[in-house]
Simulated assay, not measured.
Amino acid sequence: MSSDNEIGFESSKLGTKEYWDSFYKLEHNNFKDNKEDIGECWFDASNAENNMCDYIFNELSNIIIKEDVKICDLGTGNGHLLFQLFEDGLKGNLIGVDYSETSVEFAKDIALENNYNVKFFKSDILNSKDSFLIENVNSFDIILDKGTFDAISLNGEKLHDDKLGVQIYPDAVATLLKKDSILLITSCNFTETELTNHLTKNGQLKVFGKVDYPVLEFAGHKGSTICTVAFQKL
């Protein structure tokens, strides 16, 4: 990525709220017809969700052992990642947020149907006046992101202060995190180096760890199709 204003991706419908409203409306309707159809699990082919859960239980055990631990999933979609953590036995406050109303209603219905103790709220953390953002300053021990930053990167619309969403995101996440707490993020759009450069440039986050994925080699180049990196708030 050459600069903050040139992130290297073309704008896409995947970066629009309209797309996700429509997507989760369809998935919600499918769920109403078949309660076993809880929608798509993103990055399932890369086993990203299981890897994120394993990392939390193995590398962040000192955080999740707290009874009052607070975990927030940004761009939660159908809530699948939080439901997996709940099924795996994680206790505490599990909260999912999404700027799509249809996503939030869908996730709420899945939680109700399956007695998952997970809460969901509509929130756009890129909006500095968002009520959830304002009410949860320095609140969370762990923040999760599975593809949300990717979607944000596909929206070329300038927001407040003439900034792109990808520029606002690091500060917004840091606002929600407690000191020394963790952002665990999975991306398929950014390499580990690109993700690190972007999320640490505000001086509020540093690399804490990562998940190792199989390395592929093509035409003399090596890399992974996905990366999961943990960042700690300074």
Rank of each mutant, 00 (worst) to 15 (best):
S3P: 06
D4Q: 12
D4W: 10
I7G: 13
F9K: 10
S11D: 12
S11F: 10
L14N: 12
T16K: 10
E18I: 13
E18F: 09
W20T: 06
W20G: 09
S22A: 13
L26P: 02
E27C: 07
N30G: 11
K32C: 06
D33M: 13
D33Q: 14
N34K: 11
N34M: 08
K35Q: 13
G39K: 06
W42F: 14
E49T: 14
I56Y: 00
N58F: 05
L60D: 00
L60G: 01
L60E: 00
S61E: 14
I65P: 07
D68M: 06
D68R: 05
V69L: 02
I71E: 04
I71R: 05
C72A: 12
D73F: 01
D73L: 04
L81Q: 07
L82R: 03
L82T: 10
L82V: 06
F83G: 05
L85E: 01
E87F: 02
G89T: 03
L90P: 01
G92A: 04
N93I: 02
L94R: 00
G96H: 02
V97S: 07
V97M: 07
S100Y: 08
S100E: 02
V104P: 04
E105C: 09
E105R: 12
A107D: 10
I110C: 06
I110Q: 01
A111G: 03
E113R: 11
K119Y: 09
F120A: 06
F120G: 07
S123Q: 01
D124H: 07
I125M: 01
L126D: 11
L126K: 03
N127G: 05
S128H: 11
S128G: 13
F132S: 03
L133Q: 03
L133V: 09
I134F: 10
F140N: 01
F140D: 00
I143W: 00
L144M: 09
D145F: 05
F149E: 00
D150M: 09
A151L: 08
I152P: 00
L154V: 12
N155E: 12
G156W: 04
G156D: 15
E157Y: 06
L159Q: 10
D162H: 09
I168T: 02
Y169F: 12
D171S: 14
A172Y: 01
A172T: 04
T175Q: 11
L177A: 10
L177V: 05
K178C: 04
K178H: 03
K179H: 08
K179R: 12
D180R: 10
I182G: 00
L183H: 00
L184Y: 04
T186S: 12
S187T: 07
N189I: 01
F190Q: 12
F190K: 05
E192H: 11
E194A: 14
L195D: 07
T196S: 13
N197C: 09
H198K: 15
G203C: 08
Q204R: 14
F208N: 15
F208D: 14
G209Y: 06
G209N: 15
K210R: 14
Y213C: 04
V215H: 09
L216E: 14
L216N: 14
E217C: 11
E217D: 15
F218D: 13
G220C: 08
H221I: 15
G223H: 12
G223S: 07
T225E: 13
T225F: 08
I226R: 00
C227A: 11
C227G: 05
T228I: 05
T228W: 01
T228R: 02
V229F: 07
V229S: 05
Q232F: 03
